[in-house]
Design a protein around this nucleic acid. Structure first.
Length: 579
RNA sequence: CGGGAUGUGGCGCAGCUUGGUAGCGCACCUCGCUUGGGACGAGGGGGUCGCACGUUCAAAUCGUGUCAUCCCGACCA
């Protein structure tokens, strides 16, 4: 490809609306252009990258025994009503009507469609197991699209769905997919962690996410992991053992139940300082609104509530912290009249109470008195109304690994893929069944497996860049090498550059020759920004028979004969593309 | 959906307070000069100032409304 003809417009400055590095560089280097919020044009360079990611995914999925198909982007309401998700999916589902006023939606995911396909085509246990996948644009009307390609509304996704006759077979396929995913991300040059996670709106029981760990703040998930064993989990699912702590109020002299004055002490810190106790003997009461119903969450004073866990504990699909007004309203409903900061569980009858397991251990603890400027001390569990014990605690770094007991660490991660064991969540309500050996109709045991293609490409930028631009891994770079004649007016330079370029092409290397009549600085800046893994510069030293061979990743520069530079590129690229 | 901000050629911005008919840098076109890290000079093209209504002799500028975009919080590949 001639640089003069390549459809790319590099910018001198970052776009003003970009925050994270992948967004900034992909726009500045001319890979993408925003069309509207969360929707991007993939320009030729980007499309080459995306096709490479797709092809890696396709090869590994095919190797793993899955079969590719393509489902429609527009889907009818009826199927979504069968699964029950038309009602629960929410505003993220982009709904529209056709000319006959029939309701449709843009596909945010394809469980409904694939399940309908399966029940038409997979009638017998003899046909199972099967894994079907597609690579396609998805649309989710995100409340807040951001971070460029990392959280678009329209994005490219690989989604796979497996159909099995037993949990054992499902688990086998689940492991098979986990292995394929590892290979895929390795081939894309992305170090990932496979972490346990909540299964969220898609549903099901077991699920894992593949996280790219980067030092940029583009990661939207906290991942807790252990250096000493393989434990790793999303914060919405992580568990830990706690180091020992003072959890008996008697250690602070609170061995007797009484109501004490705590004037204006509303926060945990204020109360602890005033009473002279550690927060570990407090029992915090937090009020949440779960699907419009108030819920009181109890947790030890030094710990935080993990909202996803709480949401799952009460079986809600939406949860938020209550406002002070809502809290006071709840107290009035239960016969109390106090400010929000003094709410406590004692005497609460007309509300659901979920207590974290940390509360189970507490003795002679402190709670709000449901009375202004007062707390109760020396409280024990038998004095509280009936509560539901659950793990609703947000893990903190330094707590102990549930597998090996070593301290856990935390890091940010970008979720590029996930795998779910769905079970019969879709096959059951949609009556998607096969005939088993015993002649009985049974619902498929399903799994689903997603990879964000466009997100993976953006995550690669987050993981590989420097001040000057992108440093693509060779496997997904739009081109492998750029040949730069310093002066296009110099006949010798042009001749050598042209020859090198043609040899590279002949060897199957994806090469660009920068034939623009620009000053060298411009060409070098563009080369670094766009992120060609290799550069061959043909300049003055060609008079001594040398060109410069530059490796983008390391920045190393070396003078050598043109033939040798060409050989280097060919061998490096071939080596990198082996798998 | 709550909170904050911004809309002026392709990109980045100034002008708005104090209304007078739009400007700068980059990019683009032409010519000259230059060629190892975003040169320089001369000339040129491109914007009904997000949109609508209003105030006014006159609106990018003032008022009202509306739309869009971005940032901070709850969802997700």
């Amino acid at each position: 490809m001639k640089m003069s003809k390549l459809f790319v417009q590099t910018l001198r400055e970052f776009p003003s609306d970009a925050e994270v590095v992948s967004h900034k560089f992909l726009v500045k280097a001319g890979y993408i252009r925003k069309l509207t919020s969360g929707v991007y044009n993939y320009l030729p360079l980007m499309w080459r990258v995306l096709k490479k990611v797709e092809n890696i995914v396709r090869e590994e999925m095919d190797n793993a025994g899955a079969q590719e198909l393509l489902m429609p982007f527009v889907q009818p309401k009826e199927l979504w009503e069968e699964s029950g998700r038309w009602e629960v999916y929410g505003r993220e589902l982009m709904r529209l009507k056709d000319r006959h006023d029939r309701e449709m939606c843009l596909g945010p995911t394809h469980e409904e469609i694939i399940t309908a396909i399966a029940r038409d085509g997979l009638k017998s246990y003899k046909q199972l197991p099967v894994n079907l996948y597609q690579i396609q644009s998805k649309f989710r009307d995100e409340v807040r699209p951001r971070f460029g390609l990392l959280r678009g509304r329209e994005f490219i996704m690989k989604d796979a769905y497996s159909f099995s006759t037993s949990q054992e077979d499902l688990e086998k396929e689940y492991d098979n997919m986990a292995k394929a995913y590892k290979k895929i991300f390795d081939r894309c040059g992305l170090p990932t962690k496979m972490v346990q996670s909540d299964s969220g709106a898609i549903g099901g029981s077991v699920s894992h996410e593949f996280m790219v760990i980067t030092d940029t703040d583009a990661g939207e998930n906290d991942v807790f992991y252990c250096d000493d064993c393989d434990y790793a989990a999303n914060s919405n699912h992580a568990i830990s053992n706690l180091p020992s702590a003072k959890i008996d109020g008697a250690e602070f002299g609170l061995n007797e139940y009484k109501v004490v004055d705590t004037p204006n002490m509303k926060t945990i810190d204020e109360v602890c300082a005033f009473l002279g106790v550690d927060p570990t003997v407090l029992c915090k009461s937090l009020v949440y609104i779960a699907d419009k119903e108030p819920v009181i969450a109890l947790i030890r004073g030094d710990k935080q509530v993990e909202e996803t866990k709480l949401m799952n504990a009460v079986g809600a699909i939406d949860i938020r912290i209550a406002t002070p007004e809502e809290i006071e309203e709840l107290m009035i409903k239960n016969g109390f009249n106090a400010k929000a900061g003094f709410i406590g569980p004692m005497g609460m009858k007309d509300v659901k109470i979920v207590a974290d397991n940390t509360v189970k251990e507490l003795k002679n603890f402190v709670i709000g008195a449901n009375e202004n400027d007062k707390h109760k001390v020396g409280v024990n569990l038998d004095m509280l109304p009936e509560v539901q014990f659950e793990d609703i605690r947000l893990v903190q770094a330094g707590e102990l690994c549930p597998q090996c007991g070593k301290p856990l660490k935390v890091t940010r991660g970008i979720e590029v893929g996930n795998i779910f064991q769905l079970g019969t969540k879709y096959s059951q309500p949609m009556n998607a069944v096969y005939m088993d050996v015993d002649g009985k109709a049974k619902p498929y045991i399903m799994g689903c497996y997603g990879i964000g293609i466009s997100r993976t490409a953006a995550a690669a930028v987050e993981a590989h860049y420097d001040d000057w631009g992108i440093k693509w891994p060779i496997s997904i770079a739009p081109y492998h090498v750029v040949v730069v004649p310093v002066s296009t007016k110099d006949e010798l330079q042009m001749k050598v550059a042209q020859e090198a370029y043609e040899k590279l092409l002949a060897a199957g290397i994806e090469a660009v020759i920068d034939d623009r009549d620009e000053r060298p600085g411009v060409k070098f800046k563009d080369a670094d920004l766009i992120g060609f893994p290799f550069r061959i510069t043909v300049g003055k030293s060609i008079q001594n028979g040398n060109v410069e061979f530059v490796v983008r990743e390391t920045g190393s520069k070396e003078e050598m004969a043109p033939e040798k530079a060409v050989e280097y590129v060919i061998s490096h690229v071939r080596e990198a593309l082996k798998h």
